Amino acid sequence: MKHVCILLLVSFSLLSCVTDRNSDDVDTIDLLTNYDAITLDRPTFEASVTLEDARTIVNSGKIYVLNGLLFVNEKNKGFHIFDNENPSSPIALAYIKAPGATDLAIKNNVYYINQAVDLIAATYDKQTANLQVTKRIREVFPPKISPDGFIHDIPDGEIIIDYELED
């Protein structure tokens, strides 16, 4: 009997901790993140993939090697392209600016890039230094979440391409 009384006392104590989260008298708790979302509107985002001059790698991600070329991801920014015919001394060729991009795959000379929420297909001609986006499939991937695991509410038509630590 003593155990039943203790069990009932503990049960009632725990029940007092449970509240109705839909009740008007319960304050909502705002979950705070230490990161601000960096966004682009849809038209700017879609026009942002360009071929630029080679630059220094700052924050490298995945690496891809194929047909004498070496691609190094600049996390959430784009891809560095190197001539890798001599692997002991790669030569910087160009930079594919693709805000929000983190991965690349190549098949039949088509470059498949995940650009934030979209999947794009592009062709690159090393001889003419020309990059052309040939196809875009919108919203194939989920929106990026902040490094501390939060999902940000953003206005319609905006795409999260990265996060930065708040000041």
Rank of each mutant, 00 (worst) to 15 (best):
E158L: 12
P147D: 09
D162H: 10
E158R: 03
G157I: 12
R138H: 12
K144Y: 13
I151T: 15
L131C: 01
E158F: 14
I160R: 03
L131I: 02
F141Y: 13
H152C: 10
D156I: 09
E139V: 10
V140S: 04
E164C: 12
I154Q: 04
D162C: 08
V133C: 05
I145E: 06
R138V: 08
T134N: 02
D156P: 06
H152D: 14
I151G: 11
D156F: 08
K144F: 14
I145T: 14
I160E: 09
D148L: 07
L131Q: 03
E166S: 13
R136L: 06
L165N: 03
D156H: 07
F141H: 04
P142I: 12
F141Q: 01
V140H: 02
P155T: 07
I160T: 14
D156G: 06
K135N: 07
L165T: 07
F141W: 07
G157C: 07
D162K: 00
T134S: 07
T134W: 00
F150Q: 11
R136E: 04
L131K: 00
P155L: 13
I151F: 13
P147T: 13
D156C: 00
V133S: 05
G149L: 05
E164Q: 15
F150G: 08
I161V: 15
I159Q: 00
K144I: 12
H152N: 12
I151W: 00
G149T: 08
P143L: 13
L165W: 07
D148A: 09
L165D: 02
Q132W: 02
F141G: 07
S146D: 13
T134A: 08
L131F: 02
D162N: 15
I137K: 09
P147M: 12
F141R: 01
F150M: 13
P143I: 14
P143Y: 05
P143V: 14
F150W: 09
P147G: 02
E158Q: 15
H152V: 12
D162Q: 08
T134I: 15
P142F: 01
P147A: 11
F150N: 09
I151Q: 12
D156R: 07
L131V: 02
G157M: 08
I161E: 06
L131W: 02
K144C: 05
